[in-house]
Structures are given as structure tokens and as C-alpha cells.
Write a protein that binds this DNA or RNA. Structure first.
Lengths: 247, 247
DNA sequence: CTCGTCGAATGGTCAGACCATTGCATCGGA
DNA sequence: TCCGATGCAATGGTCTGACCATTCGACGAG
């Protein structure tokens, strides 16, 4: 039908009728990407911004909520410095919530999540071996002692999480640590359910305790060569040992 | 001052006066975490939900915006199936936006981001070597051809990104792929700025082309042992070669 | 049976009001 | 002069109610 050689079929692009709040998000995002808005900077007040962007205050508020969810903005009432809507830097919570929700929705297959966790924690512990300070080790030690001293699955799991978080933090790589923490946190509830499904969790508990102590020893010894394998075995062992069947 | 042995100091917890929309977010999140809301499920309409939760419709809408930002909800007007507010599964965009913004805000030091990218792409390419299909290879090949055939930095960078995205997708690990894509996407603008700062980018361009072809060859050959080192060298080379000075 | 029309339900948008919180300016008493 | 109390202004937080735009099913005309 196209009568001419090389004639292009008209490819109709669906016209983007964005919502008002998305346009506001785009504007604010643009300012950030261009470096015109930096951490600590203050946005105009909602009442000022709305007419400037040609939208209602509601639209501005909804846009702020979206960016707040990403940990990029924060709102505070009152006057003076620190009040109003400012650019923030809280990626950890946002990332954690995002991963937790999508893991719960099973958008990420559990197997993929375990693989990702292995990759991240291998990296984290390698860094931790090289960079952990005495304070980091003290935090880990505290978690280990609490794990050793409890009979409660929930408490055990909480300090288990705390240990892995401490290792990630000790690696001193903000992004890797945040991703590691987000995934470990997302696993918190599934692991607890797995523990509770076991008829007798004490044998597993003892093995996990021993494994954690071995990880800690490797970190204190700065043994960056063997620690990754230890943590990989530990993670795979955990998921092999837990009944993770859904429903 | 505490007269009794073992007397605990009263530790006042700051009373949490959460905002209305945060309470709504918490409720919806709880339903998701407990598996009572699954992908595809429909939420009550905003007008129904608001009085049931004892808040205004605005509060419900702001909560929905926050969860929408995480890619967990999606709203559509109209009646019938597919309309209304439903539970969605779009973690990729949300993760990408989050990482991009925080990288732009320099909350994640560039060095940390590069380290994370190396870790992720090493993993992704190893998986790709094992799992890439012909269709995956065709996508990569297309990207390579486009990179070979352009003189424009922006186009080059776009297809460079496309290549790495294709590798990540070929790995068939949703979570790892999404994280890989998010970080590569966050690097898109800084890399472009770096290219544009070069007095003459053509020598670098040629080297990058050659490196990409080597990566592609390794994937097609299923060489999972040497590919990770190749991609690590490629990434580190890129950032060593680009002037990434801020401001 | 088919097509067109209408209407109900939904989210999208807006305007406006009022409340709660916060810090600062101002004023008055010691 | 100093210091505390008070009032005020600016901010976000919340709610109400209205109207618009979109979608699709129901219903009726042909």
C-alpha cells in the first residue's frame, strides 16, 4: 500500500496525557537531575508552588508524597529553617520498603532473591573484612550474644537481621549496604514464618549460631578470601533448611 | 537518684503522631505483607475507603500516590475490570527512579556506585552466558550495530545502555536485572556529560565498541568464566577514561 | 440481532476553609 | 538592660464538596 520506496508507516505515538501530579514530579525531578536542587535545599511552599506550576495545591501535595516515598523529599510544618518541604537523603528506608513490598507480592521469585542476596552479602562481607572497625565488630558481637541468649524465634530472627545489617554497614559502601539491608529486611518475615513452621527449630538454631560465629571470626581476622564462601554457604543453608512453601 | 536497685529509668518514647496518609499507607502495606492483597487485586474506591479508614479522600489519595511511586499500586479511571486502584507489579521503574535520583543527589558516592555496578554486572553477565537465548543475542546485536553506526554521543550512550540492559535481562533474574538496570540508567546522564567533556571522544568510542563486541562474543560463546572479568575491566576502564568531576 | 445512547462508577482536579505546629518579633515587667 | 510571655505569620495537615473526564455495561431503538 505504501506507494513510495522507503515510505515509512506512520507510527502513531500514544499521546501522553499525564496527570497533574506527575507533571509536578517531573518538574521537581528535573531540578534535582540538573543539580539545581540539592540535599538540604528548600522547595517553595505548597501554596506558592501550585499557582506557579498552574496546578492546584492537591496536585503539588500528591507529587510531594510520591517523592517523599522515594526518600527524596521531607515535609515539616512550622516556620524557619528546617521547616517546609526540603530535599532529603533517605534512600535506605525507601529502598527497603520497595523491596519488601515486591518480595511480598512475589514479583521477585524467591530463588532470584536468594541469588541476589548471596551476591550482595558476598560482596558486603568481603568489604567488611577489609574495613570493619572495632565499633563495627562490637555491634556484630552484641547481635551474636543476643542470638546466643534467646529462645524466642522472633528475637533470634531480629538479631540475626541485625548481624547481617552490621556486616553490610561495616563494608562502608552505602549503595551496596542499602541493597543488602533491603533484601535481608524483606526476608525477615518469610524467614520467621519458616522458623515457626519447623517442628523443632533448635537444631537449626544451633547450626545458625555456629555459622554466624564463624562469619564473625573471619571478619575479625580480615579473611576476605574465605569469608564470601562462608556467607554463601550460610545463606544457602538457611534457605535449604527452612520450609518456605507459599500458602 | 533512682532509689531502688534495678530501677529502670523511665524511657519516654516520643509519641508517634503519624499523618493520616501514612496511616493509610501502613494499612495497605499490612494487607500486602499478610498476603491479603495480591497482584491484580482491586482496592475499594477512594470514596469507599476514606470513611472506612476514618480519613478524608485526600489522605487516601496521597497514600495511593506514595505506593504508586513504589510501583505497587496503579490507578485507572472508569468502571469495570482494570479500572479503579489495583495492586500492580512494576518494581523496575520505581527502582530506577529511586536510584537515579539518589545518585544525582550524590547520596551514593560515585565510587560506591561503580563498585556496585561492577558487582551486579559481573553477576548479570555470568547468568547471561548461561541463559541468553537467540532473541537476547539479537537484541544485543542490534544495540551493537546501532553503536557502531552512530557518530552522536547521545545516541551512542543510549544504545550502550540498551546493550547492558539486554545483558541484564538475558540473565533472567528479575531482581538482579532491575538493580543492574537501575544503576546503569542512573549512570546514563553522568556518562553522557563525561563524553561531552572530552576534547575528542572518538578514540574512547572505538575502544568501547571493541570491548562491547568482546563482551557479546563471550556471551554467545557461553564463556561464563572469563566474561565477568571482561565486564569489570570494561566498566572500570569507562570510568577511568571519563572526566567525571562534579561542578 | 446490532448499533447507538445513556448513565453509573471511577479516578482527576480544583477551590476553599480551617487546624496544628513552629519560630520569630514584639512588648511588658523586673 | 534583660528576659520571659504573648501574639503573629508562615508552613504543612486535613477535610469538605464540587465538578470534570473516562470507561464500560445496560438498555432501548431500529
Amino acid at each position: 500500500m505504501t506507494g513510495l520506496t522507503g515510505r515509512q508507516d506512520p507510527d502513531w505515538q500514544p499521546v501522553e496525557r499525564s496527570r497533574a501530579d506527575e507533571l509536578v514530579v517531573a518538574q521537581i525531578e528535573e531540578q534535582i537531575l540538573q543539580g539545581k536542587l540539592r540535599v538540604g535545599d528548600r522547595l517553595p511552599s505548597e501554596r506558592d508552588l501550585a499557582p506557579r506550576l498552574g496546578v492546584s495545591r492537591s496536585a503539588v501535595r500528591e507529587a510531594i508524597r510520591a517523592l517523599e516515598a522515594h526518600g527524596v523529599l521531607r515535609s515539616a510544618v512550622g516556620v524557619g529553617p528546617g521547616s517546609g518541604t526540603t530535599v532529603a537523603a533517605m534512600p535506605s528506608e525507601a529502598l527497603t520498603r520497595l523491596v519488601r513490598l515486591h518480595v511480598a507480592l512475589a514479583n521477585f521469585p524467591l530463588e532470584d532473591v536468594v541469588e541476589a542476596r548471596v551476591m550482595l552479602e558476598r560482596h558486603s562481607i568481603r568489604l567488611a573484612c577489609q574495613r570493619a572497625t572495632d565499633a563495627d565488630c562490637a555491634t556484630m558481637d552484641e547481635a551474636l550474644e543476643q542470638m546466643d541468649g534467646t529462645e524466642d524465634q522472633q528475637t533470634f530472627n531480629r538479631w540475626d537481621t541485625a548481624f547481617h545489617v552490621a556486616v553490610a554497614e561495616a563494608g562502608r559502601n552505602r549503595l551496596v549496604a542499602d541493597m543488602t539491608i533491603a533484601i535481608r529486611d524483606a526476608m525477615h518475615a518469610p524467614i520467621l514464618r519458616g522458623l515457626q513452621r519447623l517442628p523443632d527449630w533448635r537444631p537449626l538454631r544451633d547450626q545458625l549460631r555456629a555459622q554466624h560465629h564463624r562469619l564473625f571470626d573471619a571478619i575479625r581476622a580480615g579473611d576476605a578470601d574465605s569469608a564470601p564462601a562462608l556467607v554463601e554457604d550460610h545463606i544457602r543453608f538457611t534457605f535449604r533448611s527452612l520450609p518456605m512453601t507459599e500458602d
